[in-house]
């Protein structure tokens, strides 16, 4: 599928799906169940309103979502208490599939959610969105409901930057533009059609989620895209413009760690696909510097992109969903 053609047919704006009643009717006709998963780690400031908005608008008012679950990595603030107060099912990631152990990371929460939640479609929405709105779910599940050939729907956002004369760049964040987009351009040109490949909001069919591996850290999104693309092709994707997303701005140093994890996951995938051949073992230490008074200090961070296998290979999952 050509990129232009895909952009024309598989890129949406959330306003195209304003009719939630119709969405619910089509969902019910297909007998689909939809689960919302919010992975968390210390998100007490924003989790409460995410829960009440989704419960009120997409469960009570329009029964689009069948369950809302918060899967937590071990928050030390009141994230789980607040989420539970407002009606979400709350889980500590380590309590799900305990025989598989617990690893700390967002990807771990997303992976465990596949086992814990019951939906045919799982929508992942980050917990740090301060301008939360029902469109963050409706815009992502609608292409899956209306287009059976679509399996994986990514969000993208309006990121207004300084502009003049009516032209303004529209794209991803710093890591996307500096790292991910150049990598995709070199190795998977068709994936450059995704405006914001690293966005944390996406909706996916269970039969796809259970087939793909999950890096537990920063590399989960890029691995998903490569795995789904190589197996099902570009036509399996859609993307929806959700307008503005207001969230915490990350420091450049933190983005460095993110980029390091993403690069590991990317190279791992390329090796598996015989696209590159790294002859020596890759190091897992990221070295950064900071100035402390008159001293320049060195800091080392060990970042290893561990990976969870496809959920379909886990015995407990097989018993729950395929026996």
């Amino acid at each position: 599928m050509k990129i232009d053609q895909w952009l024309e047919s598989n890129t949406f704006h959330h306003s195209e799906f304003w009719d939630v009643r119709q969405l619910v009717a089509d969902k019910e006709k297909q007998n689909l169940k939809i689960s919302l998963c919010i992975p968390t780690l210390n998100e007490e400031k924003t989790i409460g309103k995410e829960i009440v908005i989704f419960r009120s608008e997409l469960m009570s008012r329009y029964p689009l979502i069948d369950e809302i679950a918060v899967v937590d990595s071990g928050s030390t603030d009141k994230t789980l208490e607040v989420a539970s107060n407002y009606g979400a099912d709350t889980y500590f990631s380590g309590d799900i599939l305990p025989e598989e152990g617990f690893k700390r990371g967002k990807g771990e929460n997303l992976w465990k959610a596949i086992h814990q939640l019951n939906g045919d479609i799982i929508v992942y929405v980050d917990a740090d969105i301060t301008n939360i709105h029902p469109r963050f779910v409706t815009g992502l599940v609608a292409p899956l409901i209306y287009k059976p050939e679509t399996h994986y729907v990514k969000a993208f956002y309006d990121r207004p930057l300084a502009f003049s004369q009516g032209i303004r760049p529209s794209g991803g964040g710093r890591v996307t533009e500096i790292l991910t987009r150049p990598l995709f351009s070199m190795f998977f040109p068709e994936l450059t059609a995704l405006m914001q490949p690293l966005s944390g909001e996406y909706a996916v069919r269970r039969q796809v989620l259970e087939e793909i591996a999950f890096p537990i850290g920063y590399g989960v999104e890029i691995s998903h895209l490569i795995d789904v693309y190589t197996r099902w092709g570009l036509e399996a994707f859609a993307q929806t413009d959700l307008d503005k997303r207001v969230h915490r701005n990350q420091a450049t140093r933190d983005l460095g760690k993110m980029a390091f994890g993403i690069l590991q996951a990317f190279i791992n995938r390329c090796e598996q696909l015989d696209m590159v051949n790294v002859k020596s073992e890759m190091a897992h230490i990221l070295r950064q510097f900071q100035v402390n008074g008159e001293q320049i200090e060195q800091q080392e961070f060990t970042i290893i992109e561990e990976e969870r296998p496809p959920m379909k290979t886990i015995k407990s999952y097989q018993e729950k969903f395929h026996s």
Binding site: K49, I51, V52, I53, R55, S56, E57, M59, S60, R61, Y86, G87, N131, I132, H133
Partner: peptide, 15 residues
Amino acid sequence: ACQDILLANLVMMSE
């Protein structure tokens, strides 16, 4: 028991 209706409206109205 209907808290989410009111609180969701409060969020959307306030924002």
